[in-house]
Design a binder for these strands. Structure first.
Lengths: 233, 233
DNA sequence: GTTATACCATGATTTAAATCATATAAGCGG
DNA sequence: CCGCTTATATGATTTAAATCATGGTATAAC
Protein backbone atom coordinates (compact mmCIF):
# COMPACT_ATOMS: atom_id res chain seq x y z
CA UNK A 1 0.00 0.00 0.00
CA UNK A 2 1.41 3.39 -0.97
CA UNK A 3 2.86 5.28 1.96
CA UNK A 4 1.13 8.47 0.86
CA UNK A 5 -2.20 6.75 1.19
CA UNK A 6 -1.48 5.52 4.73
CA UNK A 7 -0.31 8.95 5.81
CA UNK A 8 -3.46 10.54 4.48
CA UNK A 9 -5.62 8.19 6.45
CA UNK A 10 -3.59 8.68 9.60
CA UNK A 11 -3.49 12.39 9.06
CA UNK A 12 -7.27 12.51 8.95
CA UNK A 13 -7.66 10.73 12.30
CA UNK A 14 -4.73 12.61 13.84
CA UNK A 15 -6.34 15.87 12.80
CA UNK A 16 -9.57 14.99 14.63
CA UNK A 17 -7.67 13.77 17.66
CA UNK A 18 -5.65 16.96 17.71
CA UNK A 19 -8.83 19.01 17.85
CA UNK A 20 -10.05 17.17 20.93
CA UNK A 21 -9.41 19.20 24.07
CA UNK A 22 -7.80 16.38 26.01
CA UNK A 23 -5.24 15.73 23.29
CA UNK A 24 -4.62 19.20 21.96
CA UNK A 25 -1.34 19.55 23.88
CA UNK A 26 0.27 16.46 22.40
CA UNK A 27 3.09 16.41 19.88
CA UNK A 28 2.89 15.05 16.36
CA UNK A 29 4.34 11.62 17.18
CA UNK A 30 1.94 11.11 20.06
CA UNK A 31 -1.02 12.11 17.91
CA UNK A 32 0.01 9.54 15.30
CA UNK A 33 0.44 6.96 18.02
CA UNK A 34 -3.19 7.54 19.03
CA UNK A 35 -4.33 7.66 15.42
CA UNK A 36 -2.79 4.21 14.99
CA UNK A 37 -4.85 2.96 17.93
CA UNK A 38 -8.12 4.56 16.78
CA UNK A 39 -10.70 2.77 14.65
CA UNK A 40 -13.15 4.80 12.65
CA UNK A 41 -16.82 3.78 12.64
CA UNK A 42 -19.86 5.24 10.91
CA UNK A 43 -23.47 5.32 12.11
CA UNK A 44 -26.68 6.37 10.41
CA UNK A 45 -28.99 8.86 12.15
CA UNK A 46 -30.95 6.92 14.76
CA UNK A 47 -28.42 4.12 15.16
CA UNK A 48 -27.19 3.26 18.62
CA UNK A 49 -23.44 3.32 19.21
CA UNK A 50 -23.72 1.49 22.51
CA UNK A 51 -26.46 0.73 25.05
CA UNK A 52 -26.79 1.51 28.71
CA UNK A 53 -25.44 -1.50 30.58
CA UNK A 54 -23.02 -2.60 27.85
CA UNK A 55 -19.48 -3.58 28.89
CA UNK A 56 -17.19 -0.52 28.52
CA UNK A 57 -14.58 -1.72 26.07
CA UNK A 58 -14.25 1.38 23.87
CA UNK A 59 -13.48 5.05 24.42
CA UNK A 60 -15.08 7.40 21.87
CA UNK A 61 -14.51 10.71 20.11
CA UNK A 62 -16.99 12.28 17.69
CA UNK A 63 -15.30 12.83 14.33
CA UNK A 64 -18.30 14.20 12.47
CA UNK A 65 -22.00 14.58 13.23
CA UNK A 66 -23.86 14.64 16.52
CA UNK A 67 -24.37 12.07 19.27
CA UNK A 68 -26.73 12.11 22.24
CA UNK A 69 -26.36 10.30 25.54
CA UNK A 70 -29.66 9.10 26.97
CA UNK A 71 -31.25 7.11 29.74
CA UNK A 72 -34.76 5.76 30.21
CA UNK A 73 -37.05 5.91 33.21
CA UNK A 74 -38.77 2.82 34.59
CA UNK A 75 -41.75 3.70 32.39
CA UNK A 76 -39.61 4.04 29.29
CA UNK A 77 -39.60 7.81 29.18
CA UNK A 78 -36.47 9.10 27.44
CA UNK A 79 -34.11 11.48 29.18
CA UNK A 80 -31.29 13.21 27.27
CA UNK A 81 -28.16 13.69 29.34
CA UNK A 82 -26.12 15.59 26.74
CA UNK A 83 -25.32 16.11 23.07
CA UNK A 84 -21.78 15.72 21.75
CA UNK A 85 -20.34 17.28 18.60
CA UNK A 86 -17.10 16.98 16.66
CA UNK A 87 -13.92 16.42 18.71
CA UNK A 88 -15.85 15.70 21.92
CA UNK A 89 -15.25 12.56 23.95
CA UNK A 90 -18.14 10.43 25.15
CA UNK A 91 -18.70 7.13 26.88
CA UNK A 92 -15.89 8.18 29.19
CA UNK A 93 -17.74 7.72 32.49
CA UNK A 94 -17.74 3.94 32.19
CA UNK A 95 -14.27 3.53 30.86
CA UNK A 96 -12.24 4.62 33.85
CA UNK A 97 -14.27 2.66 36.37
CA UNK A 98 -14.51 -0.53 34.31
CA UNK A 99 -18.25 -0.61 34.94
CA UNK A 100 -21.01 -0.78 32.32
CA UNK A 101 -21.92 2.29 30.31
CA UNK A 102 -24.40 4.28 32.47
CA UNK A 103 -26.24 5.64 29.43
CA UNK A 104 -26.89 4.77 25.80
CA UNK A 105 -25.35 6.74 22.95
CA UNK A 106 -27.26 7.34 19.76
CA UNK A 107 -26.33 9.10 16.51
CA UNK A 108 -28.63 12.07 15.99
CA UNK A 109 -27.34 12.77 12.49
CA UNK A 110 -25.26 10.57 10.21
CA UNK A 111 -22.12 10.32 12.34
CA UNK A 112 -18.51 9.18 12.25
CA UNK A 113 -16.69 8.38 15.49
CA UNK A 114 -13.21 7.31 16.49
CA UNK A 115 -13.07 4.39 18.92
CA UNK A 116 -10.05 3.37 20.97
CA UNK A 117 -9.82 0.11 22.91
CA UNK A 118 -9.94 0.93 26.61
CA UNK A 119 -6.84 -1.09 27.45
CA UNK A 120 -4.87 0.79 24.79
CA UNK A 121 -6.18 4.10 26.01
CA UNK A 122 -5.36 3.40 29.66
CA UNK A 123 -1.82 2.43 28.64
CA UNK A 124 -1.51 5.67 26.75
CA UNK A 125 -2.81 7.61 29.77
CA UNK A 126 -0.30 6.01 32.12
CA UNK A 127 2.53 7.54 30.12
CA UNK A 128 0.84 10.83 29.28
CA UNK A 129 -0.21 12.37 32.60
CA UNK A 130 -1.06 15.70 31.02
CA UNK A 131 -3.91 13.96 29.20
CA UNK A 132 -5.16 12.63 32.54
CA UNK A 133 -5.25 16.18 33.88
CA UNK A 134 -7.28 17.27 30.86
CA UNK A 135 -9.74 14.43 31.45
CA UNK A 136 -10.09 15.49 35.08
CA UNK A 137 -10.91 18.94 33.79
CA UNK A 138 -13.59 17.62 31.42
CA UNK A 139 -15.16 15.34 34.03
CA UNK A 140 -15.16 18.17 36.55
CA UNK A 141 -17.02 20.41 34.11
CA UNK A 142 -19.57 17.73 33.36
CA UNK A 143 -20.07 17.02 37.07
CA UNK A 144 -20.52 20.72 37.78
CA UNK A 145 -23.21 20.96 35.15
CA UNK A 146 -24.92 17.76 36.30
CA UNK A 147 -25.10 19.15 39.84
CA UNK A 148 -26.57 22.38 38.53
CA UNK A 149 -29.23 20.49 36.59
CA UNK A 150 -29.97 18.30 39.64
CA UNK A 151 -30.65 21.39 41.70
CA UNK A 152 -32.88 22.74 38.94
CA UNK A 153 -34.88 19.51 38.67
CA UNK A 154 -35.31 19.29 42.42
CA UNK A 155 -36.40 22.81 43.06
CA UNK A 156 -37.24 24.89 40.00
CA UNK A 157 -40.45 25.20 38.00
CA UNK A 158 -40.60 23.80 34.53
CA UNK A 159 -40.20 27.11 32.69
CA UNK A 160 -36.97 27.90 34.52
CA UNK A 161 -35.70 24.45 33.63
CA UNK A 162 -36.59 24.99 29.97
CA UNK A 163 -35.02 28.44 29.85
CA UNK A 164 -31.81 27.14 31.45
CA UNK A 165 -31.72 24.22 29.03
CA UNK A 166 -31.86 26.62 26.09
CA UNK A 167 -29.16 28.83 27.62
CA UNK A 168 -26.88 25.85 28.25
CA UNK A 169 -27.33 24.63 24.69
CA UNK A 170 -26.69 28.04 23.20
CA UNK A 171 -23.56 28.58 25.30
CA UNK A 172 -22.24 25.40 23.77
CA UNK A 173 -23.53 25.55 20.17
CA UNK A 174 -24.24 29.20 19.49
CA UNK A 175 -27.65 30.81 18.94
CA UNK A 176 -28.89 28.28 16.40
CA UNK A 177 -30.09 25.11 18.13
CA UNK A 178 -30.80 22.10 15.90
CA UNK A 179 -33.33 20.43 18.24
CA UNK A 180 -37.01 19.51 18.13
CA UNK A 181 -39.35 20.48 20.91
CA UNK A 182 -39.35 16.89 22.00
CA UNK A 183 -35.54 16.82 22.33
CA UNK A 184 -35.60 20.04 24.35
CA UNK A 185 -38.35 18.56 26.54
CA UNK A 186 -36.30 15.37 27.04
CA UNK A 187 -33.33 17.40 28.21
CA UNK A 188 -35.37 19.59 30.55
CA UNK A 189 -37.27 16.65 32.02
CA UNK A 190 -40.71 17.66 30.86
CA UNK A 191 -43.29 16.74 28.20
CA UNK A 192 -43.37 17.76 24.55
CA UNK A 193 -46.58 19.73 25.01
CA UNK A 194 -45.14 21.72 27.89
CA UNK A 195 -42.04 22.54 25.84
CA UNK A 196 -44.21 23.56 22.85
CA UNK A 197 -46.26 25.93 24.99
CA UNK A 198 -43.12 27.50 26.43
CA UNK A 199 -41.42 27.90 23.06
CA UNK A 200 -44.57 29.44 21.56
CA UNK A 201 -44.55 32.03 24.32
CA UNK A 202 -40.92 32.78 23.56
CA UNK A 203 -41.80 33.28 19.88
CA UNK A 204 -44.69 35.56 20.80
CA UNK A 205 -42.32 37.51 23.04
CA UNK A 206 -39.72 37.93 20.30
CA UNK A 207 -37.16 35.92 22.25
CA UNK A 208 -36.74 33.19 19.64
CA UNK A 209 -37.46 32.47 16.04
CA UNK A 210 -37.96 28.93 14.95
CA UNK A 211 -38.53 26.72 11.99
CA UNK A 212 -39.29 23.00 12.22
CA UNK A 213 -36.55 21.26 14.17
CA UNK A 214 -34.45 24.41 14.64
CA UNK A 215 -34.54 27.30 17.09
CA UNK A 216 -32.69 30.62 16.81
CA UNK A 217 -32.26 32.60 20.00
CA UNK A 218 -32.83 36.30 19.33
CA UNK A 219 -32.78 37.79 22.82
CA UNK A 220 -30.54 35.95 25.25
CA UNK A 221 -30.92 38.57 27.96
CA UNK A 222 -34.68 38.13 28.13
CA UNK A 223 -34.17 34.40 28.25
CA UNK A 224 -31.77 34.87 31.16
CA UNK A 225 -34.39 36.87 33.03
CA UNK A 226 -36.87 34.05 32.50
CA UNK A 227 -34.37 31.51 33.76
CA UNK A 228 -33.89 33.32 37.05
CA UNK A 229 -37.06 32.09 38.58
CA UNK A 230 -40.32 33.76 39.49
CA UNK A 231 -39.76 37.45 40.17
CA UNK A 232 -39.76 38.23 43.87
CA UNK A 233 -41.68 41.43 44.46
CA UNK B 1 9.96 21.62 68.88
CA UNK B 2 10.72 18.01 69.72
CA UNK B 3 10.94 15.77 66.66
CA UNK B 4 8.69 13.15 68.25
CA UNK B 5 5.97 15.72 68.56
CA UNK B 6 6.24 16.74 64.90
CA UNK B 7 6.16 13.12 63.78
CA UNK B 8 3.04 12.43 65.79
CA UNK B 9 1.27 15.33 64.17
CA UNK B 10 2.45 14.33 60.72
CA UNK B 11 1.61 10.73 61.37
CA UNK B 12 -1.97 11.66 62.23
CA UNK B 13 -2.47 13.56 58.97
CA UNK B 14 -0.56 10.97 56.96
CA UNK B 15 -2.81 8.27 58.38
CA UNK B 16 -5.95 10.07 57.21
CA UNK B 17 -4.39 10.78 53.82
CA UNK B 18 -3.40 7.14 53.45
CA UNK B 19 -7.00 6.06 54.03
CA UNK B 20 -8.23 8.26 51.20
CA UNK B 21 -8.83 6.20 48.07
CA UNK B 22 -6.93 8.51 45.75
CA UNK B 23 -3.79 8.35 47.90
CA UNK B 24 -3.93 4.78 49.19
CA UNK B 25 -1.32 3.59 46.65
CA UNK B 26 1.34 6.08 47.70
CA UNK B 27 4.53 5.28 49.58
CA UNK B 28 5.42 6.53 53.03
CA UNK B 29 7.56 9.44 51.84
CA UNK B 30 4.89 10.67 49.49
CA UNK B 31 2.27 10.49 52.21
CA UNK B 32 4.47 12.59 54.47
CA UNK B 33 5.07 15.04 51.64
CA UNK B 34 1.30 15.51 51.39
CA UNK B 35 0.90 15.63 55.16
CA UNK B 36 3.40 18.49 55.15
CA UNK B 37 1.25 20.35 52.68
CA UNK B 38 -2.03 19.68 54.50
CA UNK B 39 -3.54 22.08 57.03
CA UNK B 40 -6.01 20.77 59.54
CA UNK B 41 -9.17 22.78 60.25
CA UNK B 42 -12.09 22.19 62.61
CA UNK B 43 -15.73 23.17 62.15
CA UNK B 44 -18.70 23.00 64.49
CA UNK B 45 -21.93 21.34 63.33
CA UNK B 46 -23.75 23.82 61.11
CA UNK B 47 -20.66 25.80 60.13
CA UNK B 48 -19.95 26.35 56.46
CA UNK B 49 -16.56 25.25 55.14
CA UNK B 50 -16.97 27.18 51.90
CA UNK B 51 -19.82 28.74 49.96
CA UNK B 52 -21.08 28.19 46.45
CA UNK B 53 -19.34 30.75 44.24
CA UNK B 54 -16.21 31.04 46.41
CA UNK B 55 -12.83 31.02 44.65
CA UNK B 56 -11.47 27.44 44.64
CA UNK B 57 -8.19 27.77 46.48
CA UNK B 58 -8.30 24.66 48.67
CA UNK B 59 -8.74 20.93 48.09
CA UNK B 60 -10.41 19.09 50.98
CA UNK B 61 -10.45 15.69 52.69
CA UNK B 62 -12.74 14.83 55.61
CA UNK B 63 -10.63 13.74 58.59
CA UNK B 64 -13.45 13.21 61.03
CA UNK B 65 -17.18 13.91 61.05
CA UNK B 66 -19.60 14.46 58.20
CA UNK B 67 -19.92 17.14 55.53
CA UNK B 68 -22.72 17.85 53.12
CA UNK B 69 -22.54 19.56 49.74
CA UNK B 70 -25.57 21.68 48.97
CA UNK B 71 -27.07 24.12 46.52
CA UNK B 72 -30.07 26.39 46.73
CA UNK B 73 -32.86 27.00 44.26
CA UNK B 74 -33.87 30.48 43.19
CA UNK B 75 -36.49 30.43 45.93
CA UNK B 76 -33.95 29.42 48.56
CA UNK B 77 -34.99 25.77 48.77
CA UNK B 78 -32.05 23.61 49.87
CA UNK B 79 -30.87 20.69 47.77
CA UNK B 80 -28.32 18.20 49.13
CA UNK B 81 -25.94 16.91 46.49
CA UNK B 82 -24.03 14.45 48.69
CA UNK B 83 -22.70 13.62 52.12
CA UNK B 84 -19.00 12.97 52.70
CA UNK B 85 -17.48 10.97 55.55
CA UNK B 86 -13.95 10.32 56.79
CA UNK B 87 -11.21 10.01 54.14
CA UNK B 88 -13.47 11.32 51.35
CA UNK B 89 -12.43 14.23 49.15
CA UNK B 90 -14.77 17.11 48.48
CA UNK B 91 -14.72 20.49 46.79
CA UNK B 92 -12.84 18.74 44.01
CA UNK B 93 -15.09 19.79 41.12
CA UNK B 94 -13.98 23.40 41.31
CA UNK B 95 -10.33 22.79 41.91
CA UNK B 96 -9.33 21.25 38.61
CA UNK B 97 -11.20 23.77 36.50
CA UNK B 98 -10.12 26.84 38.45
CA UNK B 99 -13.72 27.99 38.57
CA UNK B 100 -15.75 28.86 41.68
CA UNK B 101 -17.06 26.11 43.94
CA UNK B 102 -20.37 24.97 42.38
CA UNK B 103 -21.88 24.11 45.76
CA UNK B 104 -21.52 25.02 49.41
CA UNK B 105 -20.06 22.63 51.96
CA UNK B 106 -21.38 22.49 55.50
CA UNK B 107 -20.36 20.46 58.54
CA UNK B 108 -23.25 18.26 59.59
CA UNK B 109 -21.53 17.14 62.79
CA UNK B 110 -18.51 18.59 64.53
CA UNK B 111 -15.92 17.99 61.82
CA UNK B 112 -12.20 18.09 61.14
CA UNK B 113 -10.92 18.41 57.59
CA UNK B 114 -7.54 18.48 55.86
CA UNK B 115 -7.06 21.30 53.38
CA UNK B 116 -4.35 21.50 50.72
CA UNK B 117 -3.60 24.60 48.68
CA UNK B 118 -4.69 23.96 45.12
CA UNK B 119 -1.39 25.05 43.61
CA UNK B 120 0.47 22.62 45.89
CA UNK B 121 -1.93 19.84 45.06
CA UNK B 122 -1.69 20.38 41.30
CA UNK B 123 2.09 20.28 41.56
CA UNK B 124 1.85 17.03 43.45
CA UNK B 125 -0.50 15.63 40.80
CA UNK B 126 1.81 16.51 37.96
CA UNK B 127 4.43 14.22 39.40
CA UNK B 128 2.11 11.49 40.66
CA UNK B 129 0.03 10.40 37.68
CA UNK B 130 -1.40 7.40 39.50
CA UNK B 131 -3.21 9.83 41.79
CA UNK B 132 -4.68 11.55 38.73
CA UNK B 133 -6.05 8.20 37.54
CA UNK B 134 -7.65 7.65 40.94
CA UNK B 135 -9.25 11.08 40.77
CA UNK B 136 -10.62 10.27 37.32
CA UNK B 137 -12.11 7.14 38.84
CA UNK B 138 -13.77 9.09 41.67
CA UNK B 139 -15.12 11.81 39.35
CA UNK B 140 -16.43 9.15 36.96
CA UNK B 141 -18.32 7.46 39.79
CA UNK B 142 -19.80 10.73 40.96
CA UNK B 143 -20.82 11.65 37.40
CA UNK B 144 -22.42 8.25 36.89
CA UNK B 145 -24.49 8.70 40.02
CA UNK B 146 -25.41 12.28 39.16
CA UNK B 147 -26.69 11.11 35.76
CA UNK B 148 -28.73 8.39 37.41
CA UNK B 149 -30.29 10.90 39.80
CA UNK B 150 -30.97 13.30 36.90
CA UNK B 151 -32.89 10.60 35.11
CA UNK B 152 -34.82 9.86 38.31
CA UNK B 153 -35.73 13.50 38.87
CA UNK B 154 -36.82 13.95 35.29
CA UNK B 155 -38.98 10.89 34.98
CA UNK B 156 -39.75 9.04 38.20
CA UNK B 157 -42.43 9.59 40.81
CA UNK B 158 -41.48 10.86 44.19
CA UNK B 159 -41.69 7.54 46.02
CA UNK B 160 -39.25 5.91 43.61
CA UNK B 161 -36.90 8.84 44.11
CA UNK B 162 -37.17 8.48 47.89
CA UNK B 163 -36.65 4.72 47.81
CA UNK B 164 -33.59 5.10 45.57
CA UNK B 165 -32.19 7.81 47.83
CA UNK B 166 -32.43 5.45 50.82
CA UNK B 167 -30.82 2.62 48.85
CA UNK B 168 -27.97 4.83 47.69
CA UNK B 169 -27.32 6.05 51.23
CA UNK B 170 -27.40 2.56 52.68
CA UNK B 171 -25.03 1.20 50.03
CA UNK B 172 -22.60 3.83 51.15
CA UNK B 173 -23.14 3.97 54.92
CA UNK B 174 -24.71 0.65 55.86
CA UNK B 175 -28.26 0.06 57.12
CA UNK B 176 -28.21 2.77 59.79
CA UNK B 177 -28.76 6.20 58.24
CA UNK B 178 -28.14 9.24 60.46
CA UNK B 179 -30.52 11.60 58.62
CA UNK B 180 -33.70 13.50 59.42
CA UNK B 181 -36.74 13.32 57.19
CA UNK B 182 -35.89 16.82 56.02
CA UNK B 183 -32.36 15.80 54.94
CA UNK B 184 -33.73 12.78 53.07
CA UNK B 185 -36.33 15.05 51.42
CA UNK B 186 -33.60 17.53 50.44
CA UNK B 187 -31.62 14.77 48.76
CA UNK B 188 -34.62 13.32 46.94
CA UNK B 189 -35.86 16.72 45.78
CA UNK B 190 -39.15 16.69 47.62
CA UNK B 191 -40.76 18.23 50.71
CA UNK B 192 -40.40 17.17 54.33
CA UNK B 193 -44.09 16.23 54.57
CA UNK B 194 -43.87 13.99 51.52
CA UNK B 195 -40.78 12.26 52.95
CA UNK B 196 -42.51 11.82 56.33
CA UNK B 197 -45.54 10.18 54.70
CA UNK B 198 -43.31 7.83 52.71
CA UNK B 199 -41.17 6.87 55.71
CA UNK B 200 -44.27 6.26 57.83
CA UNK B 201 -45.54 3.85 55.21
CA UNK B 202 -42.17 2.07 55.28
CA UNK B 203 -42.44 1.75 59.06
CA UNK B 204 -45.98 0.40 58.80
CA UNK B 205 -44.75 -2.07 56.20
CA UNK B 206 -41.88 -3.30 58.38
CA UNK B 207 -39.28 -2.03 55.91
CA UNK B 208 -37.61 0.39 58.31
CA UNK B 209 -37.38 1.18 61.97
CA UNK B 210 -36.62 4.71 63.03
CA UNK B 211 -35.94 6.88 65.98
CA UNK B 212 -35.64 10.64 65.81
CA UNK B 213 -32.97 11.62 63.30
CA UNK B 214 -32.00 8.01 62.51
CA UNK B 215 -33.38 5.33 60.20
CA UNK B 216 -32.53 1.63 60.21
CA UNK B 217 -33.30 -0.31 57.07
CA UNK B 218 -34.76 -3.72 57.94
CA UNK B 219 -35.83 -5.06 54.55
CA UNK B 220 -33.67 -3.86 51.67
CA UNK B 221 -35.31 -6.21 49.17
CA UNK B 222 -38.74 -4.70 49.72
CA UNK B 223 -37.23 -1.26 49.39
CA UNK B 224 -35.69 -2.32 46.08
CA UNK B 225 -39.09 -3.44 44.83
CA UNK B 226 -40.51 -0.05 45.75
CA UNK B 227 -37.69 1.70 43.93
CA UNK B 228 -38.42 -0.08 40.67
CA UNK B 229 -41.35 2.08 39.76
CA UNK B 230 -45.06 1.47 39.59
CA UNK B 231 -45.76 -2.20 38.93
CA UNK B 232 -46.81 -2.78 35.36
CA UNK B 233 -49.65 -5.29 35.31
C1' DG C 1 -47.20 13.56 -7.04
C1' DT C 2 -49.25 11.27 -3.25
C1' DT C 3 -49.34 9.34 1.13
C1' DA C 4 -47.67 8.70 5.59
C1' DT C 5 -45.23 10.27 9.39
C1' DA C 6 -43.35 13.58 12.38
C1' DC C 7 -43.56 18.01 14.38
C1' DC C 8 -45.98 21.92 16.14
C1' DA C 9 -50.01 23.66 18.29
C1' DT C 10 -54.15 24.33 21.32
C1' DG C 11 -57.70 23.13 24.67
C1' DA C 12 -59.80 20.47 28.40
C1' DT C 13 -59.26 17.43 32.18
C1' DT C 14 -56.80 14.88 35.63
C1' DT C 15 -53.51 14.11 39.12
C1' DA C 16 -49.30 13.79 41.89
C1' DA C 17 -47.19 16.39 44.94
C1' DA C 18 -46.80 20.84 47.10
C1' DT C 19 -48.65 23.85 50.32
C1' DC C 20 -50.97 25.17 54.30
C1' DA C 21 -52.71 24.18 58.82
C1' DT C 22 -52.49 22.00 63.10
C1' DA C 23 -50.95 18.86 66.71
C1' DT C 24 -47.83 15.94 69.47
C1' DA C 25 -43.57 14.24 71.19
C1' DA C 26 -38.63 14.10 71.78
C1' DG C 27 -34.48 16.22 72.80
C1' DC C 28 -31.57 20.10 73.88
C1' DG C 29 -30.15 24.05 76.45
C1' DG C 30 -30.31 26.81 80.39
C1' DC D 1 -36.42 20.23 85.79
C1' DC D 2 -38.61 23.32 82.69
C1' DG D 3 -39.22 25.71 78.55
C1' DC D 4 -38.19 26.05 73.88
C1' DT D 5 -37.01 24.24 69.52
C1' DT D 6 -36.92 20.69 66.36
C1' DA D 7 -38.71 16.55 64.38
C1' DT D 8 -42.47 13.65 63.24
C1' DA D 9 -47.12 13.22 61.99
C1' DT D 10 -51.80 13.85 59.84
C1' DG D 11 -55.43 16.11 57.21
C1' DA D 12 -57.39 19.37 53.90
C1' DT D 13 -56.75 22.21 50.01
C1' DT D 14 -54.39 24.05 46.07
C1' DT D 15 -51.78 23.96 41.99
C1' DA D 16 -48.27 23.16 38.46
C1' DA D 17 -47.63 20.16 35.14
C1' DA D 18 -48.95 15.84 33.04
C1' DT D 19 -52.15 13.57 30.33
C1' DC D 20 -55.49 13.09 26.89
C1' DA D 21 -57.73 14.63 22.78
C1' DT D 22 -57.78 16.76 18.50
C1' DG D 23 -56.17 19.28 14.49
C1' DG D 24 -53.02 21.44 11.04
C1' DT D 25 -48.76 21.66 8.48
C1' DA D 26 -44.29 20.39 6.81
C1' DT D 27 -41.29 17.01 5.35
C1' DA D 28 -39.83 12.54 3.95
C1' DA D 29 -40.48 8.32 1.64
C1' DC D 30 -42.32 5.71 -2.01
Amino acid sequence: MAKGYIDLQHNGKAEIIKQSFIFSGLGRDELFELANLAIERSFRAGEFIFWEGDAPDLFYIVAEGQVKALKHSSSGKEFIIAFFGPAEIFGEVAVFENKPYPASSQAVTDTRVLAIEVKDFLSFLASHPQVALRIINILGGRLREAQSRLRDFAGERVEQRLARTLLMLSSKLGPTLPFTRQEIADMAGTTTETAIRFMSRLKDGGIIRSVRGKTIILDENKLKLLSEGPSQV
